[in-house]
Amino acid sequence: MTDKVMSADEAVAQVHDGDLVAVGGSLFSRTPMALIFALVRSGRSGLTLTRSLTCYEAELLMVSGGVDGLVTSWVGLGLQWGVSPVVRMLVEQGHAFHEEWSHLALGLRFKAGAMGVPFLPTATMMGSDLEARSKAARVTCPYTGQELLAVPALVPDVAFLHVHRADKFGNLQVEGYRHMDVDIARAAKRVVVTAEQIVDTSEIVRNASDTMLPHFTVDAVVHQPFGAYPGECYGLYEADMAHLDSYVQGLRDRGPQAGVEHYLRENVTTRATFDDFLQHVGRDRLAALQQQAMEMTT
């Protein structure tokens, strides 16, 4: 076991141009935003992003030039804000590709990667245009003759996760829903994690059944409180809907491209670290989100 603690910038050096990057969490929950911001600043390009519910983090990476393709089951801004104007613009103009799978099909693609098998059979997506447009072939059960869809394993080059607790070796614990994090990490070639807290291994041992992933699946551990902000981290802080709302408003006022560029200048590219960004957001605001989360989960 080795000490894997490093900075976000050092951790993001695990990403190379052209990589397939899997992002943990889902929608505005436990999205590894500190790593997304560091990836924007790194200037990597030609990346493909894969995730189940994809939203604002993809827009940031697409406009900044990092990501030009999505492998996803859904992309939008969230129910209250509708479709993603950036994805609409880039996909409708042919500047980015959007490969769509159903949630279960995408989840099983990660699971196949996690299990070390080339595909998994499933009864979903059959007969739809998602199947017709996908790379998935069919397979016949050798026992019953039932025809099933064989979804191919998806092996990301790098996975980004955000968790509640890690030790320095990369034993990871979370609270609440786990999204697709376990399969994403087990499928990926390299795994980079931000943690709200770095704790001693003895503390991990105390609640060993909360451990989501063992150290040998993890390559880099970054200590980053509020690392999922402006999204939520279950039980610790609520999503900052006002921040996200003003982001969406910026896209409406300035147009998708200029709106995202403005947001990046204000929050990402002119801030050396994620902590600088959090300081800009303000301590009181973060404390209020912690309070809301506590009321919601206790």
């Binding site: 519910l53 949630h103 998602l130």
Partner: peptide, 8 residues
């Protein structure tokens, strides 16, 4: 936005 879990 796409399927999400709707197809499933």
């Amino acid at each position: 936005p796409g399927s999400g879990g709707a197809n499933d």
